[in-house]
Design a protein around this nucleic acid. Structure first.
Lengths: 192, 192
DNA sequence: GCTCTTCTGGAAGAGCGTTCCGCTTCTGCG
DNA sequence: CGCAGAAGCGGAACGCTCTTCCAGAAGAGC
């Protein structure tokens, strides 16, 4: 259970699933989560029949895209940690997260639409992103790059809220996030 | 400006407008605000052409129904005040308001949908209902039927929030509102 | 290479919003 | 009262959508 029933997925099918997911990601941010199925299928280069074979419910597609992007964002954390010093890795990841949020305006509305199919998404969001950010935060704190008294959740929510309000293409959000990051660093300077 | 351009509305047209509003009220609470236009028109006994003649934008219908019901609720206040003693009038009006809120689940979603056409509705809600409840509240306070330290807005919001949470057909909401009302009365007893 | 299974694509069915226009009904005036 | 002319009416028709379905194409295993 949970796996996939024991059957292997045929390679062409997997290719189409990936194409659909890629296309959906683009179309969602362009035309919103309510974009026509035909548009997504066309952009993926497949027929609508193929779409419905893999995503019988529209919400299946939405959750799949969402999880995929949350995963990508979470996976960026260790990569950045390996490449940059702790403070820099933290900043970069937060900006990465900001971009993620900025493209999810329509999706946020879907989340609050009351459809039970979306109830698990917020949990997934927190469980995946919380530890990712937590690792970076701990490292940066240990290195004395930022103040200590902020929890991953606090930061996640703060950035989310900062980006939801503005309507100027996300610039307001980005500027406010920059302020927040500077605040973290300033806190460390004061302490040291 | 604002009036209706100087033209009088033909009586048959007005009859149809009322029929549409009545039908929409019922259909909205049955099938939600996204109910098919055909369904509303059919229930009103008119063609879809008539519907679009009077409500070119779907949001026109929604706002019209909303205002109409807010008005009806507000107008109930003086009527109740005339018929019952202050404490009883207040209770009855709050239950009346509870029923109003209970049937607006779908509409609340529409309000937060971000459509600019709905931006004026919350203001209308407060400006119309605030004074209505305020009058009843003052009378009841003066008569020593309830405690004094509650504002109309507080009560309006409290009741709204109480009714939004429950999903059991509004019974949970009604019971919580009953508690709230008893709380008001208890406060008066303690004081007296 | 052959067969069996899975997957594919798009036609087709059903619904919905919206427009359009010939016909009906009302209103004001003579 | 009767008669234009304006206002309003209804619903067919169009275009777009979601969703289903199945004949044929494409992989997988032997």
């Amino acid at each position: 259970m949970g796996e996939n029933g024991g059957r292997r997925v045929r390679v062409d099918a997997q290719r189409n699933i990936d194409a659909l997911l890629d296309a959906a990601k683009v179309v969602f941010s362009t035309s919103g989560v309510d974009a026509p199925v035909r548009e997504i299928a066309a952009k993926a280069g497949v027929g609508v029949g193929t779409f419905y074979r893999h995503f019988p419910l529209r919400s299946d597609l939405v959750t799949a895209v969402f999880r995929r992007e949350v995963d990508a964002c979470a996976d960026a954390a260790p990569a950045l940690a390996a490449e940059y010093e702790p403070g820099e890795a933290l900043s970069r990841w937060i900006y990465r997260f900001t971009d993620f949020i900025a493209t999810k305006r329509g999706l946020a509305a879907a989340l609050h639409s009351g459809d039970p199919a979306f109830n698990v998404l917020p949990d997934y969001f927190l469980q995946r992103l919380g530890p990712a950010l937590g690792g970076l935060l701990d490292a940066a704190t240990a290195a004395g790059a930022v103040r200590a008294e902020v929890s991953p959740q606090d930061l996640l929510y703060a950035v989310s809220n900062l980006c939801i309000s503005g309507e100027d293409g996300g610039n307001h959000g980005r500027r406010m996030v920059a302020l927040l990051i500077d605040g973290l660093k300033y806190g460390a300077m004061k302490t040291s």
